[in-house]
């Protein structure tokens, strides 16, 4: 009896899917807080002179959505993980207040759409990168350009969108994939399809 296929019913989340993805979200929220302490001072300095480059950080905030989807491979995973991560951000204190939830939902929607288009069957680097890129477009075009940067001139708006797309693809798609694969290799994800695939190689 092989019990390895947790993905037969993609709508039926197991208890461990819910708990692991929720805890992953909280841990990533804590890591973001660490990111602010360790790394962001460098990024912040680098982009202070030219805010559109700040778009290059967009992928960091999308990473939980992509990582959550790569972990549980079920519809709704991106939304579930991103919304919890946004709540953790709120609980630990952030710049933008409750409206990070609006961002979170938009970002997650971008990720969900791409994985749904691939019918929740493909979870490689390319799909993750496309998901991250679309998510970044949703975030910038659907939210930030209206709420924060409405008065940028068209050229700077375009620069911002391009920076965000690059970041969405590379950071959330690329690093998100590397992160989940790295975790899978240690054996802690053996209860998930992604873990078994990594170990079977």
């Amino acid at each position: 009896m092989n019990t390895s296929n947790s993905n037969q019913k993609i709508f039926a989340w197991r208890g461990i899917d819910l708990l692991t993805s929720a805890v992953l979200a909280v841990a990533l929220g804590v890591a973001f807080w660490g990111f602010d302490v360790f790394v962001y001072p460098i990024v912040g300095l680098a982009t202070a002179g030219f805010p559109p480059l700040g778009g290059l950080a967009t992928g960091v905030w999308i990473l939980p959505a992509v990582a959550g989807m790569l972990l549980v491979r079920r519809p709704g995973a991106a939304i579930f993980v991103e919304v919890i991560a946004a709540n953790v951000e709120l609980a630990l204190g952030n710049s933008w207040g409750v409206t990070v939830l609006v961002s979170g939902l938009l970002q997650a929607a971008g990720v969900e759409i791409v994985f749904a288009l691939f019918r929740y069957r493909r979870f490689g680097f390319a799909v993750a990168a496309i998901a991250g890129a679309l998510s970044a477009v949703f975030e910038i075009v659907g939210y930030e350009l209206n709420a924060y940067y409405a008065d940028y001139s068209p050229v700077f708006k375009i620069v911002l969108v391009i920076c965000a797309i690059v970041s969405g693809a590379a950071v959330s798609g690329g690093l998100g994939s590397l992160l989940i694969r790295g975790l899978a290799k240690t054996g802690v994800l053996n209860a998930f399809s992604v873990g078994r695939e990594a170990r079977a190689k």
Partner: peptide, 8 residues
């Protein structure tokens, strides 16, 4: 989600 948030 709540149980995980309790773990912050």
């Amino acid at each position: 989600a709540v149980a995980a948030m309790q773990r912050i």
